[in-house]
Design a protein around this nucleic acid. Sequence first.
DNA 1: ATGTGC
Length: 473
Amino acid sequence: MKLVRSGENRYRLKRQGKMLVEGLVYANDYLLPLIATDKSLQQLADAAGLPGVVGPVCGMPDMHEGFGLPIGGVMACAPDGVISAGAVGMDINCGVRLLVTEVPADELDPPILRKLINRIERYVPTGVGRKGRNRGITRDIFEEAVHIGPLGLVKRGYGLPADLNKIEEGGCLPGADLGAVSSRACERGAVQLGTLGGGNHFIELQVISELYDRQTADAFGLCPGALTVMVHTGSRGFGHQICVDYSKILLAAAGEYGIEVPDRGLACAPIDSQEGKNYYAAMACAVNYAFANRHLITHEIRKAFVDVLGKGRYNLGINLVYDIAHNIAKWEEHGGQRLLIHRKGATRALPSGHMGNPSIYRHTGHPVLIPGSMGTASYVVTGMEKAAESFFSANHGAGRVLSRTAAKKEISKEQFELSMSGTLYNTRNYRELLDEAPGAYKDIDQVVETLAAIDLTCKVAKLEPLAVIKGKD
DNA sequence: ATGTGC
């Protein structure tokens, strides 16, 4: 696959073969050689050949090979185009939520940090396959959550009313219908609501180490030295099962509608078809479920903080900064056109003044949350006008350089400990974490800088990790 | 990502 340089940090993937539109890939000199090592460019080209695709298909600087569309990929489709489960991803509405506390991080020594993550882990079940403990999360609450997201939870006393306008889409994608979801998905989903999961999912205690844009940071409630909590998780077995179910359904549908599918992972159907509409209705359930999942976890984190720090002199105001999806398909208006934007390992990044922002962030642009790998920094940025060329999208993280198996094999104990640079973690056995080691990921500073340098994004704040909870498998 | 498998 041939990339043609098109200005700083920007490459065009020119039309070839069955591509209907061009690709646009963001990389600097450090990232470019890493992108060429896997199938991600071919996957981008495959997506560019789907019916109704509106160009360019975009590859973010953290792009790497995925199921169907690469992770770090953006695909826009016109209303007469297609919808693809693989272009949303296995973990529907995998996303990030950032909380900011009024606790000065330098007053928390390692034993207190340890106490905090232990208490959080006591309240939030972690690990693959883990079910929620019976904390009153009934089938009714599950069914309400998939249809209206955190809104119903707030009415029931989980979280605060003020949280709701700090969630992408207000925490509720319209059109969710549990009737489109298999009973198997519901069985898995009902018992996992309020759990973290495994893999790259985490809860991290961080300190705001640097501000780049003080005015915007103020608007986001971010002060230097304050302790923040970042939550990265998604729709657990619920979204996974929906993706698996609909990948099969959409593959069969593609055949019926005469759509040539270049790869099983890009199985798709016309947005307007019954199969396409059903997938959207099911996906919306998982989107709302994941917002609700992060919302319930927030409730448990607030409880843990009161337990550990509540008797001291701390003001325990723990405010939601924002909650953003990075695996989702939704309707947005771009250049006067209504498009179904598939973002997989990519986040929305709207500029200031854009009407798609929640009202409280209209004048700044909503916060874009970009976690680094475990042990490395995370960033808060905003979108800029120039991001119109990527359908107002930015990268979602650092992006892998080593597969999970390669990381387990190649990274030594010494390398791991050095790369964790003193960050506390919630397990005795470092081997369980090697597949998530910093060395398995790209350099987050380089990835963030790639878009910031060409004014697609504007850096607002840097967050350094202090302690992390990872799901143990 | 995931009760990690068609």
